[in-house]
Amino acid sequence: MLEINNLHASVVDIENSEILNGINLKVGKGEVHAIMGPNGSGKSTLANVLMGRPDYLVTDGDVTLEGESILELRPDQRAHLGMFLAFQYPAEIPGVRPWQFLKAALDSKAESRGEDKMSVRNFSKLFDEKVEAVGINPNLVKRSLNEGFSGGEKKRNEMLQLEVLQPALAILDETDSGLDVDALRIVAEGVNSMRSPERSFIVVTHYQRLLNYITPDVVHILVKGKIVKTGGADLALEVEKDGYQEYLEAAGANA
């Protein structure tokens, strides 16, 4: 599904700002990968680079989706190929209703694939179902997108978008940050209900907490822009117990 080879990236317009220092990663169809790491390790950058955020510049390496390089594609083109990024800090957009925006997103996707746009009636039905499934307050989605939403509501709204857009590869960028246990469970339930042999996930997180609810197939430890260890679900528990100190020291010694 997704293959990352020797990926290097830095911040646009800032010299010597390399954040990713040669990442190699393969995510197979239907797999859930967790990427863990201390603050500043580059895990959020990785999530954003994969989606094509213009703030970052890829300086070396490649990323392929189903064998095709995506680095030259715009974020919307990547979305059309089935990629999705759940944001750590979803943008607040005054005057734009979630309904309207998601309809535009689906329409763009349909257009790019030469398919017919979904009718307003069918979309409304789908939207209402998903609102109920995600457990988001129906009054909230009538308001401006994310404006005045609490942290938990914003994340739930990200899950709503995930449900409506049905991506093939969903990247969750610290979706658990700022959530209480109940909200965390809702996010996890959303992800678990969408797990399928056809859909892959990359779950970026600082804490092991989220992984109590979402059991990953593979766990990677990211330190200073490199994956320093890869293991099974129990690797997350090790990190929970021992922290990142030994990895940081090892990375420091290598530097």
Binding site: G52, R74, D76, K109, L165
Partner: peptide, 8 residues
């Protein structure tokens, strides 16, 4: 944010 959802 909007582009990442597939909106051109």
């Amino acid at each position: 944010y909007l582009q990442s959802r597939g909106v051109d």
